[in-house]
Nucleic acid binder design. Structure first.
Lengths: 239, 239
DNA sequence: GCCTTCCTATACCAGTTAGTCCAGTGCCGA
DNA sequence: TCGGCACTGGACTAACTGGTATAGGAAGGC
């Protein structure tokens, strides 16, 4: 035995065969029964070796079909819509949020129309300064109907994800957002908040979010530092 | 991928293709034999997937004729993609385009990676100044592989829609674009081109466009006047 | 002696594949 | 109008696949 187990030997032999190009990328390996015979080990032992190769990405398994040599395909489509919180976490950063204002007030005419509620019906407005790892990145105003989002009025949203709280406290799941983006120059007040110079470019996003059944959930107005935020989306052409 | 059967994978892939608009409502899908080949599964396995899609109403079967996408759109429309030309026309404006440069050159490392071609393989670069009704709105750089888009190298693209020409001359249909947006301040050169003052905010979009089968088609780099262009999209959250 | 670890061998199951044959559909030319 | 004919989905089969479980043998440590 010399201390080297049969499964390790099989693993090493397969690694050699693969690096040498015995099995072309994209092709299927011989069945486990054949392969075990070729390598002179039992099927159970072979599967240990195959498991190691799979865990390190050298092989891909497909149940009831076989083992495949991966084809070199990098760059799968990026994601569709990410919340600020998700985006921060995906980059390994800690999302932060400082609440500047949180109040209940009557809806304006525009807001009432977009949220499909009565004019002057009560809405919750939340102004927050959002950041990643403490660096301010975005000034964020959210307006929600008080009728559906009442629990949020009294909640501390510091460092919280609004979408998460909305789901947790109100049972509301955002499904679609109508989003528009423009570029603007920061005024003095915004520049102070975001820690940039007045006139620097900011990305201004306006959002109306809806549930799956089409009910408007919230209006969002976000002003991102142009040098610290990147908007990403996958877009499709109508057939 | 443990425990996920091939038929389930085929089902999920078809669901994605349908929600994303790869097959337009009312149209017939490719034959089962072709479709099975495209998805890399056998026909019997494909039919399991098709059966599931039928039972949930996503597809309609017609014996000896084919599989059809229901005309009534059950799934939500995906994040849509409008070309500059389409957007201008939708607003009742006349899209214009002035060609500043049109050349064939070797691809950079980055470009080769994004387009999945060999480094230094020939690409066509087209720089254009795009406008609506003559007012400059966008400085636009497009890079395409010469291998697939050769006819474009010698074509006059003044006032033309690149997407239209790509379809007409090269038979290439853009289906999806990965899009990113940032805000920047215009430098002197860009300000001169767009007729704005240096330092004014511009919306900078970077795009990689793909065909339905996932082949990269082009890289786009667009700089829009912040005060004259608004990016609009419907975004859907990943289930 | 006993235990653990590694390996072999066997069997069965559900999912998959490639193949064949069939009947209905739609198109095109005579 | 009619008859081919290519193509479609429908149905079925035999062989094969990995997934899983079982039982038993061989070697080494205690």
């Amino acid at each position: 035995m010399l201390g080297v187990t049969a499964s390790t030997q099989a693993y090493e032999q397969l690694t050699r065969d693969l690096t040498v190009g015995r099995y072309a990328p994209g092709t299927r390996l011989p069945g486990e029964r054949d392969l075990a015979g070729q390598l002179g080990v039992s099927r159970a032992t072979l599967r240990l070796a195959l498991g190691r190769l799979e865990s390190e990405g050298t092989l891909q398994r497909s149940a009831q079909r076989g083992w495949f040599v991966p084809t070199q395909v990098l760059g799968e489509p990026p994601s569709t819509l990410q919340s600020f919180t998700e985006m921060a976490r995906a980059r390994g950063l800690r999302p932060t949020a400082r609440v500047l204002r949180q109040q209940v007030r009557p809806a304006s005419m525009d807001e009432a129309g977009q949220l499909r509620i009565a004019p002057a019906a009560p809405v919750i407005e939340i102004d927050r300064l959002r950041g990643m790892d403490g660096t301010p990145v975005c000034f964020d105003v959210v307006v929600l109907p008080e009728a559906t989002a009442a629990p949020l009025a009294g909640t501390d949203l510091t460092d919280a994800s609004l979408y998460d709280e909305l789901r947790r406290l109100c049972g509301i799941e955002v499904h679609r957002s109508a989003y528009t983006l423009v570029a603007e120059n920061a005024d003095a007040e915004l520049a102070r908040l975001l820690g940039i110079t007045a006139g620097a470019a900011v990305l201004v996003g306006d959002e109306v979010a809806y549930t799956a059944d089409g009910t408007p959930v919230l209006i969002g107005h976000n002003k991102y530092r142009g040098d610290a935020y990147r908007f990403e989306a996958d877009l499709f052409r109508r057939a």
